[in-house]
């Protein structure tokens, strides 16, 4: 079974993003919400790390959070956008959810 990891912190503010990437296992999923969506944007210090993780892990970002921060159009290729219903689906599709607060 696989996990859903949520990250709600900017990678520049705390280590939630790095710590999550260290612990995420192949086949699991990461959903970036709130300030976490900055971690999904191109040209950032963490972008290479996230792109590498995406070989094994599906990465999603909450569309409303991306848009409210003006980050639409800046996302790393392959990051999938979901709405709140999509968030719910990700929760039900995975065995458990870990919030990297």
């Amino acid at each position: 079974m696989t996990m859903l990891h949520t990250i709600n912190k900017s990678p520049f503010e705390r280590n939630a993003f790095d710590s999550c990437l260290t612990h995420v296992k192949k086949g699991s999923a990461i959903l970036l919400i709130e300030d976490g969506v900055y971690g999904a944007t191109q040209g950032t210090a963490g972008a290479t790390k996230l792109a590498a993780a995406m070989k094994d892990v599906a990465v999603y970002a909450l569309q409303a959070d991306v848009e409210m921060r003006g980050m639409q159009g800046r996302l790393i290729d392959g990051v999938k956008l979901v709405d709140y219903g999509g968030f719910v689906d990700l929760v039900t599709q995975h065995q458990n959810t870990q919030a990297w607060l």
Binding site: N8, I33, E34, L62, D65, Y84, F87, V88
Partner: peptide
């Protein structure tokens, strides 16, 4: 929900998540 209203977005996200789950019939 571990944070209060307004200071953090957590309560907003929790509300919108809960509403979406109910709309989906959960």
């Amino acid at each position: 929900v571990n944070e209060g209203p307004y200071t953090h977005q957590a309560s907003d996200t929790a509300y919108l998540f809960t509403r979406a789950a109910l709309e989906k019939g959960h």
